[in-house]
């Protein structure tokens, strides 16, 4: 058989085998990734999908540090039960300033994409320091250290905003120079709450059900 003799040559040539594997495995990725990542998404944002403020960005980076997305998704699927439970379904335009995306893959806790404005700051404060004080059956970890750590205690907020500006986020020089003032006197807890309250504020351009 001819294909067998072709393979006979392939499995005797190290370089040919390496090249073959690379070629065959790259096809699927190229077809799926290139059309998606080559699209320029800037300017596609909904009116409400605003940039994160310095405080919200700090909160988001703490959310990443604590791996909150291990248990909380930020992705409401267009299913009746999900829209009823969590709010308008998630749309791609809402995430153009999310680096990395934090959609998550597991709901040990509830989805958070439309959590903004649902609870008061005070509720979040109590809940993050001791979840079981407001939700007795909760299995969420307590985060007491957020209340004692000063926000941006490493002093990297401007460097972070400059990096994001380089990647295309429209932060202005004024935004960046004013960032430390926006974090002055705030704790990590304040930052996380500001981020949670900002979440899903555009509502995906849809009315509440």
């Amino acid at each position: 058989m001819s294909w067998l003799s072709l393979h006979h040559r392939l499995e005797r040539h190290t370089g040919l085998l390496i090249f073959g594997i690379l070629l065959v495995s790259a096809i699927g990725g190229m077809v799926q990734l290139l059309p998606i990542v080559s699209e320029d998404t800037h300017g596609h944002g909904l009116p409400g999908s605003m940039l994160y403020s310095a405080l919200e960005l700090e909160g988001r980076d703490i959310y990443i540090r604590e791996s909150c997305s291990t248990c909380h998704t930020q992705q409401i699927r267009p299913l009746l039960a999900e829209v009823k439970r969590y709010g308008p379904y998630s749309r791609a335009e809402e995430f153009v300033y999310d680096r990395p995306f934090l959609w998550g893959s597991k709901r040990t806790g509830p989805d958070l994409h439309r959590i903004g404005g649902r609870y008061s700051d005070v509720w979040h404060r109590l809940h993050l320091i001791d979840p079981r004080s407001v939700v007795p059956a909760s299995i969420m970890p307590a985060y007491p250290w957020l209340a004692t750590n000063a926000a941006d205690h490493r002093g990297s907020i401007q460097a972070r905003m400059r990096a994001l500006a380089k990647l295309g986020h429209p932060y202005t020089a004024v935004d960046i120079s004013g960032a430390p003032a926006g974090l002055e006197g705030k704790t990590e807890l304040d930052a996380v709450i500001a981020y949670l309250q900002s979440m899903g504020r555009s509502n995906g351009g849809q009315a509440q059900p």
Binding site: E39, T41, Y97, D98, R99, F101
Partner: peptide, 15 residues
């Protein structure tokens, strides 16, 4: 600390 070169839905597809 670093920021992904991809954002949002594009980052999700790559990830």
């Amino acid at each position: 600390k670093s920021y992904s070169l991809f954002a949002g839905a594009q980052d999700a597809v790559v990830q």
